[in-house]
C-alpha cells in the first residue's frame, strides 16, 4: 500500500525505509487535506473493525464456557481491568473504558502494522502525541478536580529535607511536563525504528549472496517486532495507569 518498490531499481542498492510511513490519499489525487480518506483512514478503520470483531462479535454468544475468540476478548478485558485496578486503584475504574480504548487501539494498530505492505498508524507522532496529550490533559484535569490545589503536592516532596524541596519541585515539574513527550515518542519511535530496520534488511536482499542472511534477519526482526508491538501497547497503558494514580492520589 504505502510501500514503494524496494531494491535495485536503478542498478545499485536503493533504500527507502521511511517510504512505508508516507501518508497518501486512498482514491487518487495528491492533496492530503483534513478530511481526505487516506491510508491512515483505512488502517484505523481496520483497527476499529478488529476491535469490534474481537470485543463485540467475539462475545456475542455470551457463553458461560467461552469460545476461543470470546476467551481472548475476556483475557484482554481482564488484563487491562486488573492493570487499572492494581496500578491506579479501585477509584480509577471509572476510567477503565477510556484506558481500554487506548490499549485496544494501540495493540491492534501495532499488530495490523506488522502485516506486510500495511501502514502503521501508531508509528506517527501525530497519532501518539494526540494519544499522550489526551492522557496528559485528562490526568491533569482529574488531578485538579479531585484534589484541588492539593494536586500541586505532587511536586512538593514532603519527605525530602526542606532545603532540597524547591530544587526537587523544579525537577518534578519538568518531569511532569516531559511525560507526554516521552509517552508519545516511546511508542512511535519503537515502531518506526523496527519497521525501518526491517526495510533496510529487505533492501540488502537485492544482493543474491546476502539475501539468505537478509531473510533470516527480517524473520528475527519480525519476531522482535511482534514482541515490541505488544510491549509498547502495554507500556503505554500501564504508564497511563501510573499517571492516573498520581492524579487520584498525589501524595508521594
Amino acid at each position: 500500500m504505502a510501500v514503494e518498490a524496494q531494491g535495485a531499481e536503478e542498478g545499485g542498492l536503493v533504500f527507502h525505509p521511511m517510504d512505508q510511513f508516507i501518508v497518501k490519499p486512498l482514491f487518487g489525487g495528491s492533496e492530503v487535506g483534513m478530511f481526505t480518506i487516506t491510508n491512515v483512514t483505512l488502517w484505523m478503520f481496520l483497527a476499529v473493525l478488529a476491535v469490534v470483531a474481537l470485543m463485540v462479535l467475539g462475545t456475542s454468544r455470551r457463553a458461560i464456557i467461552p469460545s476461543r475468540t470470546q476467551s481472548v476478548g475476556e483475557l484482554a478485558y481482564g488484563f487491562v481491568y486488573k492493570m487499572v485496578e492494581d496500578v491506579a486503584g479501585k477509584d480509577a475504574l471509572a476510567f477503565f473504558p477510556y484506558i481500554m480504548t487506548l490499549f485496544m487501539f494501540i495493540v491492534f494498530a501495532n499488530f495490523l502494522g506488522l502485516i506486510p505492505m500495511s501502514f502503521t498508524t501508531t508509528s506517527h507522532f501525530a497519532v501518539t502525541v494526540v494519544l499522550a496529550l489526551l492522557v496528559f490533559v485528562t490526568v491533569t484535569v482529574v488531578g485538579f478536580v479531585k484534589n484541588g490545589s492539593k494536586f500541586l503536592g505532587l511536586f512538593w516532596v514532603a519527605s525530602a529535607p526542606l532545603a532540597l524541596r524547591p530544587v526537587l519541585a523544579v525537577i518534578e515539574v519538568i518531569s511532569y511536563f516531559v511525560r507526554p513527550v516521552s509517552h508519545s515518542i516511546r511508542l512511535a519511535g519503537n515502531l518506526m525504528a523496527g519497521h525501518a530496520v526491517i526495510k533496510v534488511f529487505a533492501g540488502f536482499a537485492a544482493i543474491a549472496v546476502v539475501s539468505p542472511i537478509s531473510v533470516v534477519a527480517i524473520t528475527a526482526m519480525y519476531g522482535l517486532e511482534i514482541l515490541v508491538s505488544f510491549i509498547q501497547a502495554y507500556v503505554f497503558t500501564i504508564l497511563t495507569c501510573v499517571y492516573l494514580k498520581d492524579a487520584l492520589h498525589p501524595s508521594h
Partner: peptide, 29 residues
C-alpha cells in the same frame, strides 16, 4: 488528517467498548 481520523477512531472504539463490549464481558464474567 491523521489527528482527525484518530479522534474519530478513538470515539468509535470508545463508544463500542463502553456501550456494548465492556458491559457485556463484565456480565459474562
Amino acid at each position: 488528517n491523521q489527528i482527525f481520523w484518530l479522534l474519530i477512531t478513538l470515539a468509535v472504539i470508545y463508544f463500542v467498548l463502553s456501550r456494548i463490549a465492556l458491559p457485556r464481558i463484565a456480565a459474562v464474567l
